[in-house]
């Protein structure tokens, strides 16, 4: 194992280029699509002129370049360093948004760990709360909705796993978790339909009917409601809302109490 050559630090004079030249070269490379070259230029500014005005802008540009290259961890690091040094600055919203996007791009399939969904929600929520008037708020909210749908999707996937094995207690609690915690996601329709199935299989017909009624009430033309209705028909039952039941209360929360 060869030893690394000793470096004589006196000779290590750092070559200093003017920051604005470096910054413009970085931008040119970025426009030209040469991302690695652009990143190197921005990092050179940070190294040679730390804490200067150009260094500040280079830092956030570098975070963007790393994000475009798909190096999400580095993008998050660069952006977080920017936020800790210049918390009140005008590019802070953008830096926070980059962090959210970096986590968002790493969200995995619902059968795998959803920690990136949770991180994306947290970061995007920070954009919405801290920088309410920035132009990134609208997309941040869209990303939050998608990430929440992923989390709901994971609950559904586990719920279906237990439903197939006819372990109804586990299934009902998982689907119920979706209806209560993720009501405004696309998954809630299926959650209600699965609750109809689970309760019906258990023999708890009034629960099944209430679930179907809430589903029909909120999503009358959804295919899930049609299936649930057909299922209840086989037992000669009608979706009848039992107003006291939790499902109808959850349904009310869905569509607002007066509707």
């Amino acid at each position: 194992c060869q030893t690394e050559p000793d470096i004589d630090i006196t000779a290590l004079a750092s070559d200093i280029d003017p920051p604005d030249v470096l910054y413009n070269q970085g931008l040119a490379n970025l426009q030209g699509g040469r991302l690695t070259e652009a990143a190197r230029k921005f990092e050179a500014i940070d190294r040679q002129h730390p804490y200067s005005e150009f260094a500040r802008r280079a830092l956030v540009m570098n975070a963007f370049v790393k994000y475009r290259q798909g190096d999400y961890d580095e993008a998050v690091n660069g952006a977080s360093r920017y936020l800790s040094l210049y918390p009140g600055d005008q590019d802070a919203a953008y830096a926070q948004y980059i962090i959210g996007l970096s986590y968002f791009r790493q969200i995995r399939d619902v059968t795998q760990d959803q920690r990136d969904s949770a991180r994306a929600i947290q970061a995007m929520q920070a954009v919405v709360d801290r920088y309410p008037d920035s132009e990134y708020v609208e997309d941040a909210q869209a990303k939050i909705r998608f990430a929440r749908d992923q989390l709901a999707g994971k609950e559904m996937q586990v719920g279906r796993y237990y439903l197939e094995r006819r372990e109804y207690v586990a299934a009902i609690n998982r689907f119920r978790n979706v209806v209560e915690r993720y009501p405004n996601t696309r998954q809630v329709e299926e959650a209600l339909a699965r609750l109809v199935e689970a309760n019906y299989a258990l023999g708890l017909t009034d629960e099944a009917q209430t679930a179907a009624a809430v589903l029909g009430h909120n999503y009358p033309d959804s295919q899930w409601y049609a299936d649930s209705y057909a299922l209840l028909q086989t037992g000669g039952l009608q979706p009848r809302e039992n107003t006291g039941s939790w499902i109808s209360r959850a349904g009310a929360a869905l569509i607002g109490p007066d509707a």
């Binding site: 995995r108 059968t111 795998q112 760990d113 920690r115 994971k154 996937q157 586990v158 796993y161 237990y162 094995r165 372990e167 207690v169 586990a170 609690n173 998982r174």
Partner: peptide
């Protein structure tokens, strides 16, 4: 058992892990 939380599986699917449990939630 209220819930079985599976974390850290960046490749193995959730059911591949969950099916090794003889006990389920509840």
């Amino acid at each position: 058992v209220e819930r079985i939380e599976i974390r850290g599986n960046t490749r193995t699917r959730d059911y591949v892990i969950r099916r090794e449990f003889d006990l389920s939630e509840g």
